[in-house]
Every structure is written in C-alpha cells, then in structure tokens.
Design a protein around this nucleic acid. Structure first.
Lengths: 132, 132
DNA sequence: AGTTAATGATACCATAATAGTATCATATGT
DNA sequence: ACATATGATACTATTATGGTATCATTAACT
C-alpha cells in the first residue's frame, strides 16, 4: 500500500526542485529534463498546484512556475491533501453503514490512534526540510 | 486512503463472527445472513483463509468453516498480509529507480519510521481482543 | 503584426486494481 | 439418490490510476 501516491510524489519532487532556486521561473520543459516525469502529466499536476496556491504561474514566453510561498510554509500534508484528499485510514466499510459495528467498532479507536500519529509525523515535514 | 481493504475487512468480520462461537461450524450462507456480505465473494475469501491455515473447512452437508487456531493466535496483520501483501508504506516511485534520490531520499527515513510504528500497533491486535 | 514559447482548461484514453459473479467438480450426511 | 456444503477457477463489471491530446490564451521578442 502506498502512503504517498504517484501524483503526490511527482508534485513533491517538482516543488522541491523549484524550491532550491526559488527566485527562478521553471517552465515544465525544464522540470521534465531534470526530473524525468512525463511532460503532459507533470503539467497537469503543476496547474493544480497553482490553482491551490502552492505555485505561481506566468504565461507566455519566458514564463513558468515559481513557489507561491516560502518552502518553510509548504508541507508534505498540503500536497498530499491536494492529490489524495483528506488523510484518513479509517475507510473500511464501516463508514458506509454496512458494518454492524458502525458505531462501536473495536478497531476504530486503534486505527484513529494510528491515524493521529501518522498525521502528526507527516505534518511536520516541510519542503524546506527536504531540500538540504 | 485505506489502511484496511474491503477484502481484509470482510474476512476479519467473518473470522470474528466465527470466533465468538468457536466450536460451531458456520456455512457461508449463515455468515451471509449475519454479516451482509455478498455470498460468492465471501466464499472466495473464506477459501483463501482456509488455504492459509486460518480456518478449518468441512465439505458436504452440515459442513462449513471454523477457526483453525485460537483467536488469541490470529492477528489482524495475518489477515492483512494475506489479502494486502507485505505491509509497506514506502512504495513511492523511489523503489522503481526513477527518482534521483533513490538511495538517500530525505523522506524515506521518516516514512520507514512511521511504517515501523504502524506495524507495531497493528501486530498487537488479535482477533480475541476484537470480539469482547 | 507575427512568431514563438509558455500556461489554462478540459476532454479523452489505456491499463490495472478492485469487487463481485458464475460454473463445474467434489465431498458428505441423511 | 439427493440436498447441501466447499474447492478451484474462470469470468465480468466498475473504478482508480496514470498518462495523452487539443485548443485557447497570454506574453516576450523580433
């Protein structure tokens, strides 16, 4: 099972790469060369990151992407949230009201505890800490 | 994202149900009534559990499934392992040698730490502890 | 003004994973 | 013999994932 999906992984790598030289503008083509991620796919991801306020974008010749905020303020969880939705380990059939234990599932509590831990661990990871 | 897939969830529920009265034999039909899981699907799952030594099975009229070992000795991780494979959070593209940081990914260590924690938490959950 | 190089938006497609069904064979108690 | 159960396995439908393609828009630079 994957904690981090391909989307998130690609996006994170792109963000980290851009963060290393945060003044510059990086067009997709340049990122593709450096990161070996399929161009059209990466482009889609970057557009999303832009819409979500992680990146700035500039159209036209000489344009590209740059960070919209300092790398200290971009967290792994931000990117995970964008591409993977709300982090939740508890998506067994319970949620759908199928399970007879919907309310008092004996596993639920333990899983929520694990979830809390993982969330805490992940939320401490800023892009800044990944580019050293 | 799901820590526990549908397969595991269904299988676990069936095992717990059987464990509550561990002397009895439960045919699939009876489990279906009680657990509201699609019959043919559950049957397939139970066959796997039998092949993996979690359940006994008895063919023919009056047959059905029973636990192959005491509920104290059946762990959530056993069932997860059967239906979800080796537990591993670290399946980002790294493993495939695509990522330039294959060896010294700054995230890897943190994820491995999380993985270790989750594994420890899950491995402490026996079926016996879920049926009270 | 025209060309080139970039993103914006969005529709499309291919593959794999997931969830579930169907069928035929075999065993067993009555 | 018959009814009821599992064993094995092939099949199918749906969804998620990963990736492409296309056309529109914007901006810099002749």
């Amino acid at each position: 099972m994957k904690l981090i999906t391909r989307d998130t992984d690609y996006a994170l790598r792109a963000v980290c790469f851009i963060a290393k030289n945060k003044e510059r503008l990086y067009p997709v083509s340049s990122l593709v060369k450096n990161l070996r991620i399929p161009g059209p796919f990466l482009r889609k991801l970057l557009q999303v990151l832009h819409n979500k306020g992680i990146l700035n974008s500039f159209k036209g010749k000489g344009g590209g992407f740059s960070l919209a905020k300092p790398p200290e303020d971009i967290f792994l969880t931000d990117i995970m949230h964008i591409f993977q939705g709300e982090f939740c380990l508890n998506e067994c059939s319970l949620g759908k009201g199928i399970c007879p234990h919907t309310k008092d599932c004996p596993l639920r509590e333990r899983i929520l505890r694990i979830e809390k831990y993982v969330r805490k661990e992940l939320s401490s990871v800023a892009v800044a800490s990944l580019i050293k």
